[in-house]
Design a protein around this nucleic acid. Structure first.
Lengths: 214, 214
DNA sequence: TCCAAAAGTGAGTATTCACTCACTTAATAT
DNA sequence: ATATTAAGTGAGTGAATACTCACTTTTGGA
């Protein structure tokens, strides 16, 4: 792999530990946490099994140390970049342009890190220790960002008078639905039309599917 | 539990086997397939561990025999009932009423069977043997049903000229997003407003969020 | 009432796996 | 060069667990 995402942020982490983390993400995403063997992770990382336990107290410790890099080093800069785009420049650009770009940004971030995202999302359904940081650190960041944008346009009268949080949820829902469906059933989606698909999703979000005077 | 869903359909399956299936669904949904112990399933089912292996060749066999009851005995009657509602009576009722009722029906079906759905969905990400039947049996049923309805209204000129499958996907996406978000973050949703939420979702789907001449 | 077949049991087993530890190799300082 | 520390190794271990099987209990037909 020429560009790797964890490496971009964690320069100070020792090489072998990185290798192990990368291998763990790969194996976890393919087999699930409980279905993964430390032996396989070691093999995948080109490391002795014992080395894993020099860096991680237990297998579960590998899983739990996945989330900090995710939240702090990988979501935060993205959120800041997006916040700037949306809240400053974006405020007076057309809504559909801004939303399209935002969703495309999120989508690319998620796709680029699919194994990590898949693992964190799924395992958080079984391990409280993972779910709590997501709820406390990750979700609020994204929600506040979107809420702010939605509120701005609600106050300007651009949006209907739905509850702000409802609109935010709907935006997230539509993207989430697309991500899940397109990963689970890739044969229903053509890869080269991803941008068109997001464009359509944003159009539906803004104008609906009803044929009225357009 | 007074009403149980598997039992409604599988009268001929022996009592103990049912108990084991129910217990397995419960344990699988809480711990994941690999994280579940046959000993725990046995305990939950009030059955000796050996009994499990009288009915199921292996632990994996429990998982795989979950899908047939799901597809054949649990989705099919629902799909038929919905098909009738949508394709006959529903064709000339207001679109928002029909969609709202359909989504509420699906939602209730999913919620009533959440542990089973959760297990099947998640484990199908790790076990091809589960994903294939979903793709071949379950998905086409739902897709055809919705496609038919969408096409009818597209031809009548009620809907904009998006690709039929795109509209169908969008409807599924929005519901999927709601189900996932409301299960993962129940604190953002009030239970008694579920119907209102679905109503709003359908309204956004049809009219969008843009404030235009309403 | 009796008996054969079916259903159910749970202690036992072979295997798998997370983790340890005594050791080797590499790095760094003096 | 040498000593000291740190990093890495992998055979070994004990606990856990899916599955077996010899046995017991239940069922239902004659």
């Amino acid at each position: 792999m020429t560009d790797n995402n964890i490496r971009e942020f964690d320069d100070e982490i020792p090489e072998k530990k990185l290798k192990i983390l990368e291998a763990a993400i790969k194996v976890f995403s393919e087999k699930g946490f409980e279905g993964s063997r430390t032996s396989e992770i070691a093999k995948e990382a080109n490391v002795a099994e014992g080395t894993i336990f020099k860096y991680f107290k237990t297998k579960k410790d590998i899983l739990l140390s996945l989330l900090l890099p995710l939240t702090l080093k990988f979501i935060k800069p993205f959120a800041m970049k997006s916040a700037e785009k949306i809240l400053n420049k974006g405020k007076d650009e057309p809504v559909d342009e801004v939303l399209k770009n935002l969703l495309l940004d999120i989508l690319h971030l998620v796709k680029k890190n699919m194994p990590l995202v898949k693992t964190v999302v799924i395992e958080s359904l079984y391990h409280e220790e993972l779910l709590v940081p997501i709820k406390e650190k990750l979700a609020p960041q994204v929600l506040e960002l979107l809420d702010g944008y939605v509120n701005y346009h609600k106050e300007k009268g651009d949006f209907k008078d739905y509850d702000t949080r409802f609109i935010t949820r709907t935006i997230m829902s539509m993207l989430l639905g697309y991500v899940v469906l397109s990963s689970a059933f890739p044969e229903f989606f053509s890869l080269d039309e991803e941008e068109k698909e997001i464009e359509n999703i944003v159009n539906v979000l803004i104008n609906g599917i009803k044929n009225g005077g357009v």
